[in-house]
């Protein structure tokens, strides 16, 4: 029988060192070709590190009101002071802690809900699926910020955790819808059907076969949910719906507004939190360009083909 005898060529190809384009290599290759995700990562890391090491970067308590009010930036106060005599630089650093934590926490909740509510109904099927799809669509058409405002206005004690929870619990619908349709499309693929034939439980099919193929979508969802959460948090706090005594980039803007920073020409009070929010959003978007390339099947396929053998003449 012919299949018993492999040729020298095939043997040679087989015994050649296994060319493993590991996931890490794939990612580093993308970073080499496209600098945008790298820039995003650097910006985000700068913000995260400065927030984490805030006590080392500033000697002042961000809430302390002991300084000259509305002082312009100087050697002692790099970013000047607020109308109540707080140091803006330390507010900026400590505020980043809460703002980033709330953003990532809320983004994580929204994404986790999107994964569960997007994948599970298609697993359970039947009326649960139909009901969930309807519910998701209703959530999609309710405008986000007004809903947040209404909920936060009803909930007392709107600390950062509450705000994160509210944002996370309302921000999952988009992701859920995308992940649901992707789950449905993947569950019709041959490899999923084959795994059912292999005796896999439906739960295992979902988590072991379908979920890995959606990871990049999940990561992209996490990125966007986090951006949305940081913006929503800033908006709510700017509108005074947060706890104004907690220092965040959002409450900084709230106090700057009530303290009439613009009228007083105190640009140093407004620009740092505003710029920080914008830059973090930008950095996450830049990172998403990289995620996009990992998840775009066409880019990925070409890469694999080129790595294997350039079968350019192959019919499409």
């Amino acid at each position: 029988m012919s299949q018993a005898a492999h040729t020298d060529a095939e043997q040679a190809a087989v015994q050649a060192p296994v060319k493993r384009s590991s996931r890490w290599k794939e990612w580093s290759g993308i970073l080499k070709r496209d600098k945008r995700p790298l820039v995003g990562i650097v910006i985000l890391l700068l913000f995260m590190l400065s927030a984490a090491f805030a006590p080392l970067l500033t000697p002042y308590n961000p809430s302390a009101t002991q300084f000259t009010p509305l002082a312009a930036p100087s050697w002692h106060h790099w970013l000047g002071t607020t109308a109540s005599g707080q140091d803006v630089w330390s507010q900026f650093l400590y505020g980043g802690r809460i703002s980033l934590s709330v953003g990532f926490f809320a983004g994580f909740i929204a994404t986790a809900l999107a994964v569960i509510l997007g994948m599970l109904p298609s697993y359970l099927g039947g009326w649960i699926d139909t009901t969930m799809a309807t519910f998701t669509n209703i959530m999609l058409v309710i405008p986000g910020l007004p809903l947040l405002i209404v909920i936060t206005a009803y909930v007392h004690q709107t600390g950062p955790v509450t705000i994160a929870l509210v944002i996370g619990l309302t921000g999952w619908a988009w992701g859920a819808r995308i992940l649901r349709s992707q789950t449905l499309s993947l569950s019709r693929r041959d490899f999923v059907i084959a795994s059912r034939l292999s005796g896999e439980t439906q739960w295992r099919v979902l988590t072991g076969e379908i979920l890995p193929n959606m990871l990049s979508l999940v990561v992209a969802n996490l990125v966007f949910a986090t951006i949305a959460a940081i913006l929503a948090e800033a908006s709510l706090e700017f509108l005074g719906l947060g706890n104004p005594s907690v220092v965040t980039w959002g409450t900084m803007l709230y106090w700057a507004d009530t303290g009439q920073a613009l009228l007083n020409g105190a640009w140093w009070w407004i620009v740092p939190p505003g710029l920080a929010i914008a830059l973090v959003g930008l950095s996450l978007s830049l990172i998403n360009f990289g995620v996009d390339q990992v998840s775009n099947p066409r880019l990925r396929l070409n890469k694999v083909k080129a790595a294997r053998k350039p079968r350019k003449g192959a019919p499409s």
């Binding site: 012919s2 005898a5 040729t7 053998k309 350039p310």
Partner: peptide, 12 residues
Amino acid sequence: IEGIPGEPPDMS
């Protein structure tokens, strides 16, 4: 029938 063992060469 019998196949042609092996595979076409790597064009690079």
